[in-house]
């Protein structure tokens, strides 16, 4: 009883698996819950594909500019703090882990665990943003800004291009973090209301997929921006 808490809002007992006359969560245009889940997940994967290509454009720009202005990019990269980058990487990997555990908790009907994991994921996301805020304000303070706003002392002429791409890539990623946090907040609210159980947890799963994609992008951003010598 302490661990297996069924969603109570549906009001029907679930003592036989796989047979529903008409579950509340099943929309009319789907023939069964299975089809609804598959359609929903395919839609999510297609959306993630467009996200990959959205970031892909910036990665292409980074690769092209880096091959042209290697010295400038090297100088720009020296201004980034490896330590803060590492901390943020660990924080995001941890948040991905807790999100995966959240999906696991919803698959196994553990409502309290689901809520806890979602809260931890949100806290990790917030930590990431706070660290990013300190990084950004330090860059602003030193005039390490994109294009003509770049006022810092520099050895090579194109350091501003590095910071242009740095702010575009981490900024777009930061917007995705905020969007992900909103989505997780929504799922958390629905979890508290008891909308999810082992039969229906598609929103948890799809928001989880989105969150893992945000982590995936950072997995590439971190070495390319912070580490590459």
């Amino acid at each position: 009883m302490s661990t297996a808490i069924h969603g109570t809002s549906h009001g029907h007992s679930q003592d036989h698996h796989g047979h529903h006359d008409h579950p509340e969560y099943l929309q009319h245009h789907f023939s069964d819950a299975e089809q609804q889940v598959e359609a929903s997940k395919l839609g999510m994967w297609l959306f993630l594909v467009t996200e990959v290509l959205l970031f892909g454009g910036l990665f292409v720009a980074f690769a092209a500019m880096r091959s042209l202005h290697y010295e400038s990019f090297h100088e720009g990269h020296e201004h980034l703090s490896k330590t803060l980058g590492i901390i943020n990487t660990v924080v995001l990997i941890l948040s991905s882990f807790t999100m995966a555990l959240g999906v696991h908790a919803s698959q196994t009907n553990q409502k309290k665990k689901l809520i806890n994991y979602l809260v931890v994921t949100l806290l990790c996301a917030l930590t990431f943003l706070v660290i990013k805020y300190f990084e950004y304000s330090e860059k602003f303070h030193h005039g390490l800004l994109p294009g003509r706003y770049f006022t810092a002392h520099h050895e090579n002429p194109h350091v501003s291009i590095f910071f242009g791409l740095y702010f575009l890539m981490t900024g777009l990623h930061g917007i995705h973090i905020i969007a992900g946090m909103s989505a997780i907040g929504w799922v958390l609210w629905r979890a508290i209301k008891g909308h999810f159980n082992s039969e229906y947890y598609t929103p948890v799963e799809n928001v989880g997929l989105y969150w893992h994609l945000v982590d995936l992008v950072w997995i590439y951003l971190f070495p390319l921006l912070y580490l590459l010598p």
Binding site: A100, E205, L209, D215, L216, I219
Partner: peptide, 10 residues
């Protein structure tokens, strides 16, 4: 990325 895709993203 593969580890995240294959296991975290199922």
């Amino acid at each position: 990325a593969m580890l995240v895709c294959l296991y975290f993203m199922h």
